[in-house]
């Protein structure tokens, strides 16, 4: 476990680069990880995906399957990959402050 300081905020980050607790999430975290996830500029569409992931996680305690993400946002799968080149399972979840999904991912 390492601690990252960024723009006056501090995050405990696990070995996979996910923040260790959802409670520590704040918008600065998204700023901090965007470059390593291959995103140059954050748009409203990125934030929409991030907020959908977070709402689902607060209700269910896990990340939603991609199908739910596309249904709620109305985005096609290809568009989600354009937004998050490292994918909805890892990249978008990492940015949203969710833990790394369970299993072979």
């Amino acid at each position: 476990m390492a601690t990252v300081e960024f723009k006056g905020k501090s995050f405990d980050v696990d070995e996979d680069g996910f923040i260790s607790s959802f409670d520590q999430w704040n918008p600065e975290w998204v700023e901090y990880v965007k470059a390593s996830e291959g995103i140059s500029e954050l748009t409203e569409e990125h934030w929409k995906v991030i907020h959908v992931l977070q709402d689902y996680y607060r209700k269910h305690g896990i990340a939603p399957m991609v199908r739910i993400l596309t249904k709620v946002t109305g985005y096609k799968l290809k568009y989600i990959y354009e937004l998050f080149p490292s994918g909805p399972g890892k990249g978008a979840c990492k940015m949203a402050g969710l833990p790394k999904p369970t299993g072979c991912v």
Partner: peptide, 11 residues
């Protein structure tokens, strides 16, 4: 399949 496919990599 591997469950990761329907869950996170439906493509």
């Amino acid at each position: 399949l591997n469950a990761r496919e329907p869950m996170y990599y439906p493509q």
